[in-house]
Design a protein around this nucleic acid. Structure first.
Lengths: 269, 269
DNA sequence: AAACTTTGTTTTATTGATAAAACATAGAAA
DNA sequence: TTTCTATGTTTTATCAATAAAACAAAGTTT
């Protein structure tokens, strides 16, 4: 009993000794709001955090005072304010990537009539950094800033396939250990074979799989030294998709635009 | 002496009693990174915060552990990671506004060859929520998420002019009290007259002024009940601008697109 | 090479954040 | 209505975050 407690304390002082609960929870609160939950009550926030209502009461006071959230004086419910954009945009603005690729992605969207995206690697995830939704009414709704497990998306696999061997293996073993919930199970051997064939073909064509109901064609973008730096894709809802069209027109179009972006990247960055 | 201290303590317990320093500083650290300062050292962050190095040391440890920042193992310097996008994009994704206006803003950009933007009101500020940069090389670089004082921009004045009287006066008095640094001095009487004429004309044409070297044409966007909900603009660097072109082509084009967006807003939202 | 400066990191006393409890209020159920 | 439950708010004891100081290591200046 004594020993167990000591061990736990030891672990804490090794791994979490400098973790700040206040900051952890403050950021968690900001991330708690979503398209589905645009407003939240104090009780909801407290329950989501798994703490008493005192803690978020103070956090919410602070965030409101800073202008990141507002409180409806009648319903007492909280919601995000535009100022939260300041937090992420400093990062996005520091990237040249989406800016430079914008005209190409728009062209691709207009040529195919489907939504085009760009994503980069962040740990085990693909992060969407640019998005040009199809002009049609029913469109794909994966937004800029979204994170998805790298092995669950066409863009992710595409990026993974073209990574240097050492980085690829490191990521694969991490994915196997984690076995991320809601994502497909990682069978490393199978995945490794798939990545090999992706690398040879130069593109990924997903018909459904993880992104249920979505067809997706992805290609890698290369920078200096022929290193993969990003991926682009075209996505369309399954019921609007046509296999022949995809094979004959869309895949070549995505590959073509990816090559154009890559050669532009090599020239500029 | 005694009394002064007591007074200060009283004030604190009234206004700041629930303010959390940890959260305040954590968010300040995230905002400290910029296009100019993409990486920062512990000492720089501590000095910017005006505190000892211990505090940011802990904050940075926490933010790194959460995946919002990284530390270069060699230089020891810190930088933002893509995960910070998660903080702001939940908000942007909850807005229909930029999504619905996108095709119109793109059209406007392509017709004029200049950068188009959309902004909304947030307290005393205009926040940019959509941006379509000109396809030319030298372009305006006011990014989505940027905040500017409402009376310093064409979009801001445009929005302000069409606000209901009570809200307008409330904002004007706030602006006068604050006298925001780096922004033009607010002479309420003069500004009120200007807003009146803006409301009659229906657009704002800025030749320079606060946004030095930038010409800008802004129009209001109206939603249900004819309430102003946003503004759009076209911006171009001064040396590329042409007064006759602006007057004859650009201003009518912006007004036309603004009307189109407004009538679409009334129909949909 | 020696002294100085700066930077990152660790330790400890003090200050501030948190949880539990108590309270107030409002809406739902009896 | 009365009771009950849920929610927001305030108070106080405990626990975590902070500043100051001390330390180690690297880079500069002398």
């Amino acid at each position: 009993m004594e020993i167990t407690k000591k061990k736990l304390e030891k672990q804490k002082s090794d791994n979490e000794k400098y973790l700040s609960n206040s900051i952890l929870r403050g950021l968690e609160v900001l991330k708690m709001f979503s398209v589905e939950n645009q407003t939240l009550s104090l009780a909801e926030i407290a329950s989501n955090l798994g703490v008493s209502r005192t803690t978020p009461y103070r956090i919410l006071y602070t965030l409101e005072e800073c202008g990141y959230i507002y409180q409806d004086s009648h319903t007492k419910r909280y919601g995000l304010r535009p100022k939260v954009l300041e937090l992420g945009y400093t990062y996005l603005n520091s990237l040249e990537l989406p800016e430079l690729a914008a005209p190409y992605l728009e062209k691709l969207r207009d040529e195919t009539g489907m939504s085009s995206h760009m994503g980069i690697l962040d740990g085990n995830d693909i992060v969407y950094i640019a998005r040009y939704p199809a002009r049609s009414v029913a469109t794909i709704t994966i937004n800029v800033g979204s994170h998805l497990p790298v092995h669950a998306t066409a863009m992710g696999k595409c990026l993974l396939a073209h990574l240097p061997e050492e980085n690829k293996e490191e990521l694969l073993s991490k994915l196997q250990v984690l076995q991320i919930p809601d994502a497909p199970i990682v069978e490393v051997k199978k995945l490794r074979d798939e990545l090999q064939s992706i690398k040879e073909k130069g593109y990924v064509f997903h018909k459904g799989e993880f992104e249920t109901g979505v067809w997706s064609v992805a290609c890698p973008i290369f920078g200096k030294d022929n290193k993969v730096i990003a991926a682009i894709n075209i996505a369309i809802t399954q019921h609007a998709a046509d296999e022949e069209l995809m094979e004959e027109k869309i895949i070549p179009a995505v590959c073509q635009v990816a090559r154009e972006i890559s050669s532009f990247m090599v020239m500029t960055i």
